[in-house]
């Protein structure tokens, strides 16, 4: 029974990881860049939720409607006018570039908000739900459901809307899409905007449960990356699967190996995955 509870906790955590990984995976798959600043963008989303709650009493799950568009705009502008200039450069250059952006964003947040942990309190009922012997905290359940819901929303946006189809087309074959009249630079900007918007949404959901600090950003980046590789690159549903799996693996790892080795367990799983099935659980081979 303890095992079932641990797996359930992992799934609830994994719902949040899914939201974090979905945007990261989309940007990686379409633009072929790893956005090192994704973790800091998640923290920025958390701050939006925190200050909206602190000064306007807004529920952090509703702050999604604030953080999403805000980070979308920031991401669009960043991609269109800055990252676009190095987009064709080798992996090393784009990695170091987004690393530089991460340093700037993270250090700015530390300067403005300090590194102190801030927690949203008193929004959700503290009495958990009970299903037989299983315990289900209300805030975690709502946040995980919202995370998976938003990720599915992104998936359907990509597969149903006109702009979404254009993004998928660019991911599959940039040159052909260009020949069909798709403006690739605009698609890149939109995609990067969507990636940061997902980070902002994930940040709001995390802020509903966990304390917020710029110090969390490296861990969030790590999560997004591992979940993304587990699920398979360039597939939003893959990122959801990877996120849920990672949540369960981390919870089981904490139970059997010890909570202090959580990152190592996840990293070892990741390395095994990279060696045996680099295209991920649901992904297709060919993206590098």
């Amino acid at each position: 029974m303890q095992l079932a509870q641990v797996i359930l906790n992992g799934l609830l955590l994994g719902g949040l990881y899914a939201a974090m990984a979905a945007g990261f995976s989309l940007v990686w798959g379409v633009l072929n860049i790893i956005n090192i600043a994704q973790g800091s963008a998640v923290v920025l989303g958390s701050y939006v939720a925190y200050f909206a709650w602190r000064y306007a009493g807004l529920n952090p799950l509703l702050a999604v409607a604030l953080a999403g568009p805000l980070l979308f705009g920031a991401g669009w502008v960043l991609q269109r006018f800055l990252i676009q200039r190095v987009i064709a450069a080798p992996v090393l250059i784009t990695l170091v570039f987004t690393f530089g952006m991460d340093l700037i964003l993270n250090n700015t947040m530390i300067s403005l908000f300090t590194a102190d942990y801030r927690k949203i309190e008193g929004v959700f009922p503290t009495v958990p739900l009970h299903f037989g012997a299983l315990t289900l905290p209300v805030d975690r359940l709502l946040a995980a459901a919202a995370g998976i819901g938003v990720a599915f929303g992104l998936h359907f946006y990509l597969h149903r809307s006109r702009l979404g189809r254009a993004i998928v087309a660019v991911r599959m074959d940039r040159q052909t899409a260009e020949l069909m009249g798709v403006r690739v630079e605009i698609i890149y900007a939109t995609t990067f905007g969507l990636g940061l918007a997902m980070a902002g949404v994930a940040g709001c959901l995390l802020a509903a449960i966990f304390p917020t600090s710029p110090l969390n950003s490296a861990y969030y980046l790590h999560i997004a990356f591992v979940a993304c590789v587990l699920g398979g690159l360039g597939s939003v549903l893959g990122a959801v699967a990877g996120g849920l799996l990672l949540g369960v693996v981390e919870s089981l790892g904490a139970l059997f190996v010890g909570a202090e080795y959580g990152t190592t367990v996840a990293a070892v799983v990741l390395l095994l995955m990279l060696f045996t099935r680099p295209q991920g659980l649901l992904g297709r081979a060919g993206y590098e």
């Binding site: 450069a89 570039f97 690393f99 340093l103 700037i104 993270n106």
Partner: peptide, 14 residues
């Protein structure tokens, strides 16, 4: 200082 390094990186690569 970390942010300064970030600015240096971004400028350098551009």
């Amino acid at each position: 200082s970390a942010g300064g390094l970030g600015v240096l990186i971004v400028l350098l690569l551009l």
